[in-house]
């Protein structure tokens, strides 16, 4: 039987520096997990909207007036945006080789993260104002 290795392993990601590309990649994973976990909410809403005309109108009303639902929709929306934006960035890197150097990759990551913040602010205004 293989002996258990009791030696410590240093692996505290809170104390290990990651470049912006790494942080974006990590958040891309997290956003993917959140989307997977919350897709049932979207399916539930789709189901409600298709049940009947009254239910559709009621759902629209809930979306406009229920503050908790608004927050949920806002969070799901920005998660979709983040996952899509960083996903597109990865596809562009894979297909066209753009951002394969640390400097260019970092600049592109910053651009995408700033785009995400701007889109999030627009979404916030759209949902809550």
């Amino acid at each position: 039987m293989k002996e258990k290795d009791n030696r410590p392993v240093y692996l505290n990601i809170l104390t290990i520096n990651l470049p912006i590309i790494g942080i974006s990649s990590f958040l891309h994973r997290v956003s993917g997990f959140v989307l997977f976990s919350t897709y049932l909410v979207l399916v539930w809403m789709l189901n409600r909207s298709l049940t009947s005309e009254e239910e559709f109108v009621q759902l629209l009303s809930d979306l406009r007036n229920n503050f908790s639902l608004k927050i949920l929709i806002f969070l799901i929306s920005i998660t979709i945006f983040y996952h899509s934006l960083i996903g597109i960035k990865k596809l562009i890197t894979d297909f066209f080789g753009v951002g394969e150097q640390l400097k260019s990759g970092s600049i592109i990551s910053w651009i995408y993260n700033v785009m995400f913040v701007l889109i999030s602010i627009t979404t916030l205004i759209f949902i809550f104002c």
Binding site: P19, G22, S25, G105
Partner: peptide
């Protein structure tokens, strides 16, 4: 996944991600 921490830390300035 193209995190590029390898490039960031390489003491010889190499680019394993590329």
């Amino acid at each position: 996944h193209g995190i590029m921490n390898c490039v960031s830390v390489c003491p010889k300035g190499l680019n394993p991600a590329e």
